[in-house]
């Protein structure tokens, strides 16, 4: 059986679906039997998801939008 350390190093490739069939199978074997690794995987994914959602939503403030528009218009006119 592969150990936790190896599994945790492979998390990226596992999530991206880049493991070979053989490694993927031993990965799944390990997970069947290892609650701490399941927790680690769940929280790894949750951290990605939460950070993504938080950081995607930096809306440009209206005042900045206006300034950018003025800026674009100015350059267009030149």
């Amino acid at each position: 059986m592969i150990c936790c350390k190896e599994c945790l190093e492979l998390l990226h490739d596992y999530i991206e679906g880049e493991l070979s069939a053989e490694v993927h199978a031993s990965f799944e074997d390990h997970f069947e039997d290892c609650p701490p690794c399941i927790v680690f995987l769940n929280t790894y994914k949750a951290a990605i998801h939460m950070s993504q959602t938080t950081l995607k939503s930096n809306d440009i403030p209206d005042i900045v939008k206006e300034r950018l528009k003025e800026f674009i218009d100015k350059n267009k006119a030149e």
């Binding site: 150990c3 936790c4 350390k5 701490p36 927790v39 680690f40 769940n42 994914k45």
Partner: peptide
Amino acid sequence: LLPSLNGAGFQQEKLQDWSENT
């Protein structure tokens, strides 16, 4: 960044699963 592992590379601390409470 990894949880604490023993010499054979297995986890030895109890992890909390907070992923469902997010």
